[in-house]
């Protein structure tokens, strides 16, 4: 029987987990333990619904509704002095919840604080662009679309950024395998030589430990080169490595291996 592998998440999995193992948690502290953060949270809570908020590793995490994302970030930027958006991306929870988690990592230089604003959206649900507030979101949102297929509304130039325009699939989704799908495997061959060249060029060699004993021309067989296709069931003949060609170079004396001296006496 073939081993069952879940199709919704094809990433590497731990092959053994103890039955009684319980994952520990990174400590979360309440927002009230920090004066600056509790003020910020109060300001956000005044106008918007906050689903959850806590402090983890010195940074405040605020969960909001996805529809409020633009307004909350506007508030954070203009009233709460979070003047830089360091990072913005998505996390793929499609296998578990059918949702993406979007996080906005923000920095206030005057308060020296960082907060992370998070929200959940469904797979096909668009999210409003924050490019009007932070130009840095321009490229981040394009990357998010490229890598996850999250649709961003109100973005001036919604195109793929890292992958080519004619790429299929969104690489960072958990359903996308690390070494790519069929289209990815033949992408460059199809584009340059056409589909009919697939047979000539052959599939990609993804086995990192593979050594083709009969192909000494291409890789890592210095000193054992044989013509391509030659039969070597009895072992390859050794080709002595010479640093100079026969006949020699003008003014340069050829070094013969027979002239070499092996020094055995260490004190010589």
């Amino acid at each position: 029987m073939r081993k069952y592998t879940p199709k919704k998440d094809v990433q590497a999995k731990s092959y053994y987990t103890d039955r009684f193992w319980v994952a520990p948690q990174v400590a979360k502290s309440p927002v009230e333990s920090d004066a600056t953060f509790s003020e910020d949270l109060a300001a956000i809570k005044e106008k918007f619904e906050v689903l959850d908020a806590y402090i983890q590793v010195d940074q405040m995490v605020v969960y909001i509704n996805a529809k409020d994302n633009f307004d909350v970030i506007k508030l954070a930027k203009e009233d709460l002095a979070y003047t830089q958006m360091s990072e913005l991306s998505a996390i793929d929870w499609l296998a578990d919840k059918g949702q993406f988690e979007i996080f906005y990592q923000m920095l206030s230089m005057t308060k020296r604080k960082r907060i992370r604003i998070k929200c959940f959206i469904d797979e096909q649900e668009p999210i409003l662009s924050v490019e009007k507030l932070f130009r840095s979101a321009d490229w981040s949102e394009r990357e998010m679309y490229d890598m996850y297929g999250v649709i961003v509304n109100g973005h001036p130039f919604m195109k793929r950024i890292l992958m080519p325009d004619d790429w299929s699939g969104h690489p960072l989704r958990k359903t996308y395998p690390l070494i790519g799908d069929e289209a990815a495997a033949w992408y460059e061959v199809d584009k340059i030589f056409g589909k009919e060249a697939r047979d000539v060029i052959g599939p990609e060699i993804r086995d990192t430990a593979r050594i083709d004993r009969y192909d000494t021309e291409r890789f890592s067989r210095l000193g054992h080169e044989v013509p391509h296709g030659a039969a070597i069931p009895e072992g390859e003949p050794k080709t002595p490595l010479a640093y100079q060609e026969d006949g020699g170079v003008f003014l340069i004396k050829k070094f013969h291996e027979d002239d070499s001296v092996i020094i055995t006496d260490r004190d010589r």
Binding site: P177, L178, I179, G180, A184, I192, E204, R206, T208, R218
Partner: peptide
């Protein structure tokens, strides 16, 4: 030479899939 440590979707597994190579440096 071979794609090296980047055994991923985005990397060509060796330039010899696209152009002929004379010498490989490890």
């Amino acid at each position: 030479n071979t794609g090296g440590m980047f055994n991923t979707y985005a990397t060509v597994q060796g330039v010899d899939r696209v152009i002929p190579v004379d010498l490989y440096l490890p």
